[in-house]
Amino acid sequence: MSWLDFNRRGVWAIYHFEMARFRRTLLQSLVTPVMTTSLYFVVFGSAIGSRMTQVGGVPYAAFIVPGLIMLSLFTESLSNASFGIYFPKFTGTIYELLSAPVSSLEIVLAYVGAAASKSILLGLIILATASLFVPLHILHPFWMLAFLILTAATFSLFGFIIGIWAKGFEHLQFIPMLIVTPLTFLGGAFYSIDMLPPAWRTVTLFNPVVYLISGFRWAFFGTADVGVGISLSMTLGFFGLCLGLVTWIFRTGYRLKN
């Protein structure tokens, strides 16, 4: 394959199709996460936050903003991407994708690109919503965007893998509900891991989500639980892992082709 015959029209067709699905379900896609985030602010930011001191020099209500954005970014990337590829498998329309002159790279680019676009947009909307509740100053806007995009891309890839692996709709919920949400809550979305007893702090360092949230929070406030370099390399590592899995899936035809 050469880059010359890259099927850009095919990629655009899939991307456009996926974004049209997003527009059709705009209400669920946008309103729900924004509502949820606002509720978190009311409960954690105002009710609990008013009784809490600052965390690492940052007011508690502001402290939880990066974690909340990440939480939405994870779940939305996963559900967008997994649903996007699972649904054609479920309805049978995947035949067209498999018989089209698009490479696996192009398929991934289109589906993951669309899913990531949606969740990046969503992340920015949540950020805007949050700034209505708390005054926010972003210290490293470039890195904030970089972490946002990288995380959205990584979890969209992860979601794509789940969508291909899933044999039923309940499978789509399985990993997000059972693994990602708990890891996020335990990953320092609402607290600094310094607040944990030392033993738990060590355990927490095995949670990959810690690094994602920590890096993102560093971009906001310049303080972090772990070094930003480690955060970045862990995020890139996870991205690479997902990319490797997707490559393997297409090479073997796993759950796509007989």
Partner: peptide, 29 residues
């Protein structure tokens, strides 16, 4: 190559116009 498979499988939420144009784009035309 064009294929009309045996099983009825369509993108139910799309319009006829959108889905047919999608196919053309998907095939790089």
């Amino acid at each position: 190559i064009g294929l009309v498979p045996q099983e009825l499988a369509t993108d139910t939420f799309e319009t006829v116009w959108a889905t047919v144009n999608f196919s053309r784009g998907l095939f790089g035309r």
